[in-house]
Simulated scan of single mutants.
Amino acid sequence: MVALSGGAVKTVAGDGILTVDFRTDFAALPYSNTTGDTAIGFEVDILSEAATRSELVMEPAESLGEFSPAALHHLWLAEKGDVDVVAQGLFPGLYAYLEAYADDEQFRGIDAARAQSPALFTDPYYLEDFGFAVNVELHPEIRSLADLEAGMTVATYEDAAADLWVVENLVPNGIDVSRVTNGSVLSPLSAAALAGNVVGVIHSLPVIEVLAADIPEIEIVDVIDADVPVAFAVDPSNESLHEALNEALAGMVADGTYQTIYDRWFTNPAGSVVP
């Protein structure tokens, strides 16, 4: 149920409160994370500023910091109208992913019928590249994607944009894919470090940079210039909020606020910045 907010934009809670679900179950700065009970990160700062420009006050959902198994499960919160916005490093192609893999036994049988009431995605606030990370102690021969051969296995996060990229670009060449559940205690990088049959991991570059920093034997040996749009998912019944957030994002890009926030969290090439 959408209630009237204190301003012109409607929200779930009303009273000018923008309720947001952030992914905070693993230390994947600079997207979003927690310090104590406080949400921090690039998505948090971008959405907080967008909320202010829409005359709203952003508040994390009560699920802040709790484990949830997959981005698509978080997306469900927006689809049902339980929250106003889901900020999970989501890509609009998630619905295509859902349709393509809903019957996969690794995918936990999420019902494709949910896409009949899809969330509204904002304009992108980030263009995501992927990193290819390798355990160079186990596989010193792998120094780039060009070194992969048929029969080798790479790991990806389930329901992530990189998974679709691997399926479309590497699987046809005989490369196998091992999907790791989002939010797993063992990240794909540590899984690669422990299992010699996985030669490396392909995942979001900013996330994989953080994870690789804590594992000395893991190196990012290649970067995939994918430019996958990353966007916020909005309650599908709230078109006014969707429009307000898009207007706010455009204004932030135009006046330089977006760039200031980006520089606070990222050291990636400027190609990942929304133009």
Rank of each mutant, 00 (worst) to 15 (best):
E128W: 05
D103E: 15
I17L: 10
E43L: 08
I46H: 09
E219T: 06
F26W: 14
H73C: 09
P206A: 07
S117D: 00
L4G: 13
G6H: 08
N268G: 00
A71R: 11
N238T: 12
D84Q: 01
A195G: 10
D25H: 15
V210R: 14
D225E: 12
Y262C: 02
E79Y: 03
V177I: 15
A254N: 08
L194C: 05
A13Y: 02
A250Q: 02
N135P: 07
I46L: 12
E59Q: 15
A3Y: 01
D111M: 03
L4Q: 14
L47D: 10
D82W: 04
N173C: 03
H203P: 00
D129P: 00
V44L: 02
T11W: 08
N238K: 04
P172L: 04
G36R: 06
A112H: 08
V134S: 06
L189F: 13
I175M: 10
D159F: 14
T38Y: 00
A233K: 07
V221F: 08
S187G: 15
R53G: 09
P269E: 09
H73W: 10
M58K: 06
P60N: 04
A71K: 13
P92H: 05
A70N: 13
I40K: 05
Y258E: 01
G200V: 12
L194P: 01
I142E: 08
F26T: 15
A102K: 10
